[in-house]
Simulated assay, not measured.
Amino acid sequence: MKRAYKDEQDIVDHAADIDDAEVCFYPEESPLAHRFLSALRDGGFEKRERPDFEDNGASLLLEAMQVDDHAGSGKKDKTRAREASLLREIEAAGLDVPPDVRVLALADSGLPAGRDHNYRAYVRHFTATVDQHARNAETYRAERPGHDLGFIVFDESTSYFEGLGAFGQPGEGRPHVWLNDSVFVDAILQSGADCFVWMTPYKRLETIQTGVVPLPAMTIIDVALLRQADHVVYDAGRMVSSEE
């Protein structure tokens, strides 16, 4: 039984199906951003060894990765462990699930929200993952001169807001706009990528002041334009998951 979005091809396939209304261009639209979106939707990216995909007709390369905001990692990640346990339970129950169907296990780790979904863990995982892939950026470019390099990130984190501490109520504070968070922006700017496709299917934010805040499921960032945009510094000690 396959876990949903378990590999690079699943990520690219999912990106191709995201509707226009859920796509955001940041800080603004650009020809490069539209080239990557078109290649994703047209099925132009073909699997290769490294980077993960290429579209020779459009002169594009694409490297895929996943990040989350769980406080644990590897064997210590209770959410991942519970997901695996749920999938085993489904298999043991003998349910007739077609082999080409992806199963999404929404697991409750049993941890308090602040330990399950954690902003500092989110930052660590995001920056470390992007940095790991960034180390190969020049190698990718050398293999395909003239191609633009993109990173596509499947981000499984929740939404966050910067709370008011002891003086505020749950749901009060400044919503976290991950696109202009200086910590994430710095990682993107140092990645060596020309374009950054940021998929965030699980972010949902509701505040006392504004109610439900519509959030994009996929943001396409032209990195050259990102260098000119304003960035925001958030107080990590006051960042609270929307699931708390």
Score class of each variant (00 low, 15 high):
152 I>R: 02
109 S>F: 09
124 R>H: 10
239 M>R: 01
131 D>G: 10
10 D>Y: 02
206 E>C: 08
102 R>S: 13
33 A>Y: 07
226 L>P: 12
235 D>W: 05
109 S>K: 14
43 G>H: 04
14 H>V: 10
94 G>L: 09
31 P>R: 13
232 V>A: 00
51 P>Q: 08
17 D>I: 11
238 R>E: 01
190 Q>L: 14
65 M>L: 13
29 E>H: 10
176 H>P: 12
115 R>N: 11
193 A>E: 14
100 D>N: 04
13 D>A: 12
93 A>T: 05
191 S>E: 14
237 G>L: 02
187 A>M: 13
25 F>C: 13
100 D>G: 01
240 V>D: 01
122 Y>Q: 04
33 A>E: 07
160 Y>V: 06
171 G>D: 05
38 S>W: 11
127 T>F: 00
58 A>S: 15
214 P>V: 07
224 A>D: 14
12 V>S: 05
149 L>D: 07
173 G>M: 08
105 A>S: 13
145 P>I: 03
153 V>R: 01
30 S>M: 11
173 G>R: 02
133 H>R: 14
197 V>R: 04
121 A>S: 15
209 Q>H: 09
220 I>A: 06
105 A>D: 06
192 G>S: 13
231 H>F: 00
18 I>P: 15
146 G>Q: 10
42 D>S: 15
128 A>V: 04
91 E>G: 10
179 L>T: 15
236 A>S: 13
155 D>W: 06
212 V>Y: 12
236 A>L: 07
91 E>W: 10
105 A>Q: 03
215 L>E: 10
220 I>G: 06
157 S>F: 08
224 A>Y: 01
52 D>M: 03
20 D>Y: 12
37 L>W: 04
57 G>N: 11
59 S>A: 12
150 G>N: 05
139 T>F: 01
53 F>I: 05
90 I>Q: 08
56 N>V: 09
153 V>F: 03
128 A>L: 03
7 D>R: 08
129 T>D: 01
218 M>L: 14
54 E>N: 10
81 A>M: 10
244 E>F: 04
142 A>F: 01
19 D>A: 14
77 D>W: 06
1 M>R: 03
171 G>Q: 09
61 L>W: 10
19 D>C: 09
55 D>V: 02
48 R>Y: 01
223 V>P: 03
188 I>R: 15
105 A>I: 02
121 A>C: 09
223 V>Y: 03
132 Q>S: 11
142 A>C: 02
7 D>Y: 06
165 G>T: 08
237 G>P: 03
166 A>H: 09
100 D>M: 03
166 A>N: 12
209 Q>K: 15
60 L>D: 02
38 S>E: 14
150 G>W: 04
138 E>Y: 00
212 V>T: 14
47 K>T: 13
168 G>M: 11
19 D>V: 14
169 Q>I: 08
127 T>Y: 02
81 A>V: 10
219 T>A: 15
115 R>D: 12
200 T>P: 05
162 E>C: 06
208 I>C: 08
237 G>Q: 03
168 G>R: 07
112 P>I: 12
227 R>C: 00
83 E>D: 05
164 L>V: 05
37 L>E: 02
76 K>L: 09
58 A>E: 15
53 F>R: 01
162 E>D: 08
44 G>P: 12
237 G>S: 02
125 H>L: 00
73 S>Y: 11
171 G>E: 02
171 G>R: 03
